[in-house]
Every structure is written in structure tokens, then in C-alpha cells.
Design a protein around this nucleic acid. Structure first.
Length: 456
RNA sequence: GUGGUUAUAGCUCAGUUGGUUAGAGCAUCAGAUUGUGGUUCUGAGGGUCGCCGGUUCGAGCCCGGUUAGCCACCCCA
């Protein structure tokens, strides 16, 4: 017998952890529902070609592929050998692998919309809470299997959607007690305009990758990287100017206007951000425009979001999203624009843990433990436990008659707030002793009055 | 995917230049206590030193490989 282990980057979730995770998930689901989103689930696996090419070159490498069954079929051996040669060259071949684990929830959603657009009524607002898989190297806050919680609206170009999604972030983080969250926005068109001003749309990726690192490596290193990626001194100096924009949201937008406001794309981007900020004006969100924000996924075309944990926690991004104008176009259905956001539950968990923001009573499941003091006593206890259960109060009867010490310790470990003791005396008198383990207060109650007792 | 680092009891960790039988605290179990827990006291169980191989008379310690955690890069939730 070898010791069992878990695959790299995966985890088991024990009872206490599951409770905390579902507290987060329930909070998010509730807010999604509050804003009119409807649930959707899609399979763990998709056809490989549904996923390939949707997440950029790096993303493709991180997709978990599933080996086909039946590769040992002798009749097909020759074909399988030639196919496998292609795999060794880094190609994907249907004969070897045609399915993959889903990498995010957005592309499967786009696939769903493309397949069902004739039946759906638009705008279609859906939320989805499911695990996704990435063949990334694990670190703290980075796993190979993790949950995403997405909300997307498709079939509407209205910026009201962006506004409401920002409010959802605000509402969820506030409900979780994460009031110090940091929500940033930027616009793909502004980034596109910047690269246009800097000598051609071909530079977009080079520029966004470099400026996204500003926080981490500083302006000098960013300039070095831009030069290394082939930008001229003039172009680098425009970007330096762009990165130097600071101040309030309005100050940042005016700053952007000076650099990219004369371009069509730049104007659109700035106007849209301004509209959304205007709509949010009275809502007290911690929202700020951040010209360095550049989300990696290459399907975003409009406003983009990123939610970060409070600065005191070293976890970084806990959510992100943005507008994509033609996601279903990838699957042959044109003109269905969309916008969506995502919450990273696993990271939010780590943040709440670090800041000790989980409610204390999450771990209370059983409210009442009946002590077991013998055959006749436990028969009565069982009867009363059934009464409480029928009233919706979760109750347990200790599984065997043993000394008090053990039964108390069981209650303590399971965080059970009340124990009920029925012994020989109580059995005769038709009453029972209810002890509150938190306060230590014990009182005697008639059995007929037990169901009225407030087990708070 | 690249580089670095760590792995000893259920948990947190000691373990000397390689040397007989690998230790502590907490936790667990039993007793002091036959109807009232959290404190205290006494005792007990528990380890193929992540795994595989090598060097050596001898390896927890040295070397190689492998698996997993962590860190940086890349990227990302």
C-alpha cells in the first residue's frame, strides 16, 4: 500500500472549509439573483477545438487535454502512431485528444449562446458557478482546479450593464465584509488608441504586456522592456507620458484625452468610462480608472474590470471581467455583444481568512446534542430529538451511553451550543436539563415545553 | 514551461563534523473522577525520517532521480 496523494494543485475541502466556501458562493449567488441573473451549468469538458485559440498562445498551453480512450486498438495502431508523432511536434490531433477540461466559464457560455441563440430571449443574463482547470504551476492562491463565479449579459450594448456589474462587485464585497476592496477599470479602446498613436495596432500586445507591469517593476524597467520589444524613443516617451497620468477619475480621463482623445478609439473609450462613472456617481463605490490595467484575455474589446483585495493582503486580483463585442462570432453567430465579470472564490477565501472576516456562527450545524445516559433515557431523548428535528432544529443523540466527559467534548468539538441531559430523575419527572455551553447556564424544562425553548 | 527552496509523529518543529534504540510541545487514548466539559496531575499509543536508487563498515544528515508544498519569472482567479 502506497500512501495516497492528490494531483498537483488540487485540494480536498473538509467540513469547515466547505461551510466557509459555500458562505462565499451563496453570497455571490444571492447578489447575482438580486440583479436578475439566471443560473447555467455546462459540462466539465468541452471539445478541444471549442477552447483552442480563445485564450491566446499562453492560454492554449495551459488547457488540460484529455487523452482519447481506445488508443490501444490494434486495428488503428498505424494511424495512432503517426498521430502521436504530430503530438510530439506540439500539434493537437483529434486521433489522440479531442476533449479538454474547461479553462474558464466565458467561452463555454459563448458556445452555449451560439448553440441556443434562437431560443434565448435577449438580453440574456446568466450566472455560472463551477470549477475550471488550468495546467499552471501552483503557488499560493493559484491552483490547478479552482472555482469561478461568472455573471454575463449578452445581447445588449447598453453601458447600464457595465454599471450594474460594477455594483455587483460592490454589493458582494460589502456583504462579505471586504469593504477595502479596490475596483479598477480601463478600456480596451484606450489601449488600442495608445498603440495606434505609437505606431500601429500591431504593437497592442507588446504595449499592454509591458505597461501592466508598471506596479511591479517600475517605470524604468517598463521603458527598457518597451525598447526591447522594438519601440522607438519617441514612442516610449508617449507611453511614459500616458503612464504618468494620475489623480481623480476625472483628472485621469482628461489626461487620457490629451494623449489619445483625438483618435476615434480613444474618444469612444474615454466617453464610455465617463458614462459609467457618471451612472455610478451616487453609489459610493471604490472604483478608479487605471490606465495600466490590461487584462490578458484577448477577447475583450470594451471596458475592462479588475477587482483587487485590500492592499494589506498580498493576494492581488480577486476578480475581473470586461466587454467583448463578438464572442459568439468565434462560433459562427454574429452580432451578439456581451459583458461579464468573474469572482475568484479561492482567492476571496484566502483574503477573508487572512482578514478574519468569516462569521463565527458558520461552523454551527447541530444546535442540540442529547446526552445518552442509558437505554431507557436515550429512548426518551430520541423521541424528543425527533420533535426538535420536526421543528427544523438540528439535533443529535450521542451514539452510545458513556461518561459525561466524552459527550461534552464531542459537543465542544462540533461547536454544538446546547446539550440536553435526560437521566433517571428527569425521566421520572418528565423534564430535561438544557445546558448552554457558551454561557454555562443550565435550566430545567418540562418535556411538553421543550419545543417552545428558543435554541438561539 | 524556466529557475530557486523545503519535506522528520495527526499538527508545529528540534535532531551536532555521517555513528548504537530519532526527540519535544500541542493533539489523541486510558486513569485520578459511577450525573456536569474547557484547568490540573499520572501513564500509554503513535514515525519505513515524502518516495526510488547510489556512496559508505554505517545515511534523517552526503549524491542523483522523482513526487508534493512554497517563492520568483511567465501568466493569471
Amino acid at each position: 500500500m502506497t500512501k495516497p496523494t492528490l494531483p498537483q494543485g488540487t485540494r480536498d475541502f473538509g467540513p469547515a472549509v466547505v461551510r466557509k466556501r459555500s458562505y462565499i458562493l451563496q453570497t455571490i449567488r444571492t447578489v447575482f439573483e438580486l440583479y436578475g441573473f439566471q443560473p447555467l451549468e455546462t459540462p466539465a469538458m468541452e471539445n478541444l477545438e471549442t477552447l483552442m485559440g480563445k485564450y491566446g498562445e499562453e492560454g492554449d498551453k495551459l488547457i488540460f487535454k484529455i487523452l482519447n480512450n481506445g488508443l490501444d486498438n490494434k486495428d488503428k495502431e498505424a494511424q495512432i502512431r503517426t498521430d502521436f508523432e504530430k503530438v510530439l511536434e506540439g500539434k493537437n490531433v483529434k486521433g489522440i485528444t479531442e476533449r479538454a477540461l474547461k479553462y474558464d466559464l466565458t467561452i463555454p457560455f459563448a458556445r452555449y449562446v451560439a448553440m441556443n441563440h434562437a431560443q434565448l430571449s435577449f438580453p440574456f443574463k446568466r450566472y455560472q458557478v463551477q470549477p475550471v482547470w488550468r495546467a499552471d504551476r501552483p503557488q499560493k492562491g493559484r491552483y490547478r482546479e479552482f472555482y469561478q463565479c461568472d455573471a454575463d449579459v449578452v445581447g445588449s450594448r447598453s453601458l447600464l450593464n457595465e454599471t450594474e456589474l460594477a455594483l455587483i462587485y460592490h454589493e458582494v464585497f460589502n456583504r462579505l465584509g471586504l469593504t477595502g476592496y479596490d475596483l479598477r477599470i480601463n478600456h480596451r479602446q484606450v489601449l488600442a488608441a495608445l498603440s495606434e498613436v505609437c505606431g500601429g495596432a500591431g504593437q497592442l500586445t507588446n504595449i499592454t504586456v509591458a505597461i501592466a507591469k508598471l506596479d511591479k517593476i517600475g517605470i524604468e524597467k517598463v521603458k527598457e522592456e518597451l525598447s526591447a520589444r522594438g519601440l522607438t524613443t519617441d514612442q516610449v516617451s508617449i507611453i511614459e507620458q500616458y503612464l504618468g497620468i494620475k489623480g481623480s477619475n476625472e483628472e485621469i480621463l482628461s489626461g487620457l484625452e490629451k494623449i489619445v482623445g483625438h483618435t476615434e478609439a480613444g474618444k469612444t473609450g474615454i466617453d464610455e468610462m465617463r458614462t459609467v462613472l457618471e451612472q455610478l456617481k451616487d453609489q459610493q463605490l471604490n472604483i478608479q480608472t487605471d490606465p495600466t490595467l490590461a487584462r490578458g484575455l484577448n477577447y475583450y474589446t470594451g471596458l475592462i474590470f479588475e477587482a483587487k483585495a485590500p492592499a494589506t493582503v498580498s493576494i492581488g486580483s480577486i476578480g475581473g471581467g470586461g466587454r467583448y463585442d463578438d464572442l459568439t462570432g468565434l462560433f459562427g453567430v454574429k452580432d451578439i455583444p456581451g459583458v461579464g465579470i468573474s469572482f475568484g472564490v479561492d482567492r476571496i477565501y484566502d483574503v477573508l481568512e487572512e482578514l478574519q472576516l468569516f462569521p463565527k456562527d458558520l461552523q454551527i450545524s447541530t444546535r442540540v446534542l442529547f446526552f445518552n445516559l442509558g437505554a431507557a433515557e436515550s429512548k426518551k431523548a430520541f423521541e424528543l430529538a425527533q420533535l426538535l428535528r420536526a421543528k427544523g432544529i438540528s439535533a443529535e443523540l450521542y451514539h452510545e451511553a458513556t461518561k459525561f466527559d466524552k459527550q461534552f467534548k464531542y459537543a465542544e468539538k462540533k461547536n454544538i451550543p446546547y446539550v440536553i441531559i435526560i437521566g433517571e430523575k428527569e425521566l421520572q419527572n418528565n423534564n430535561c436539563n438544557i445546558k448552554n455551553l457558551l454561557t454555562g447556564i443550565q435550566e430545567t424544562v418540562r418535556n411538553t415545553a421543550l419545543i417552545q425553548f428558543p435554541f438561539k
